[in-house]
Design a binder for these strands. Structure first.
Lengths: 192, 192
DNA sequence: CGGGGGATTGAACGATCGTCCAGACGCTCG
DNA sequence: CGAGCGTCTGGACGATCGTTCAATCCCCCG
């Protein structure tokens, strides 16, 4: 049973542990993520990390799966907008300073690097990417109902390429104007 | 003095050591790069690695600097083509299966991840990126002399974004057709 | 030939790694 | 109350890490 003594403002310990993993990963890469560093950052004992996550692989996998939700959430719109405006807003949101933080971008990059180095993490990553593209295609078809499913999927894939490049280039420190132009390019790909 | 006993087909030991670093980095990420693993992969003793590169940071920095040349070389054309054709060829080459290998892409990603985690490696990376973009702008202006220097630089930056996304997406396993479309997009950005 | 210096080796150091485990804590239920 | 159970702690294990170092090798020069 979860504790939930009502007086405690502190988050669930498992949450705190995953937060710590993501924070360390974004800050110093995978080499900065040791079981002890995670425990210290989360403010729990070393033993507890291994208690909740049997080994390091499972710990990192759990942390990675927690980023997925955040990525897909980028596409979730305020539902009361017209479909086209909803799509425009979703495409603009990837460049929103609120989401496009260094920490988030760095996290993304480390996730990709991990996926390239370990098969297990690669699966988590490709699954997330597939879900993201499907959701994007759905938004496009809502805004342009005359498109075939295949056409919408193709446009979603093209947008994904530019967005990946946009994220990556933002991380590497390009100026904001070329990012704005890239967002505009995504809009025109989506809406012709 | 370098040995260079003429009978030996084996490369310089320092070269072999850097090769080993890059191979391990591409294959298993930074966690796979230990001094011992590098020595084993290069077929030399552990001590020699530390003899040529005083510590691990300097070893990796030397390896990263060796990738730069390869990146810039992507833009170097056969000199006997017309400027526009030279540019088209350079832009197409980033998607050439000969360069777009998994090993090379993975290496690039690990480089970016490293740059994000350590200041020292970040400097190496941004320097290389700057040189790449300048060289690309030069090619564009050769093909379109009527463009101002600023316009050419702007186009080079836009192309860099799409190319980064192209590389990244190729690495993440997207289909070849969307890559081809992205190459075409780079061409039209460059030549209007 | 004898010596000097760069190249190369592998053993050894202390630190840190992931994992394991015996036990303590706090809570519920019979 | 006491037995049971999920939660949590920190010490201990062997493995591996980066680094250091004395000793050896090889080759050129005097």
């Amino acid at each position: 049973m979860a504790k939930r003594s009502e007086g405690l403002p502190e988050k669930d310990r498992q949450e705190r542990i995953l937060d710590a993993v993501l924070h360390l990963l974004a800050e110093g890469g995978i080499s900065a993520v040791s079981m002890r560093a995670v425990a210290r950052e989360a403010g729990v004992s070393l033993g507890l990390v291994n208690y909740h996550y049997a080994d390091k692989t499972r710990l990192i996998a759990a942390a990675l799966r927690r980023i997925e939700a955040q990525d897909i959430a980028l596409l979730e719109p305020d539902a009361d907008l017209a479909p086209e405006e909803r799509l425009r807003k979703a495409l603009a949101r990837v460049a929103d300073p609120e989401f496009l933080t260094t920490a988030y971008l760095s996290l993304r990059l480390q996730l990709w690097a991990l996926a390239q180095a370990h098969e297990e993490f690669e699966q988590i990553n490709t699954d997330a990417q597939k879900r993201y593209r499907a959701e994007l295609a759905r938004l496009i078809r809502a805004a342009r109902p005359e498109l075939s499913r295949a056409d919408a999927a193709r446009r979603a894939a093209d947008i994904d390429v530019v967005q990946n490049g946009l994220w990556l280039t933002a991380l590497l420190g390009l100026d904001r104007r070329s990012i704005a132009r890239s967002v505009e390019r995504c809009v025109s790909i989506a809406l012709e």
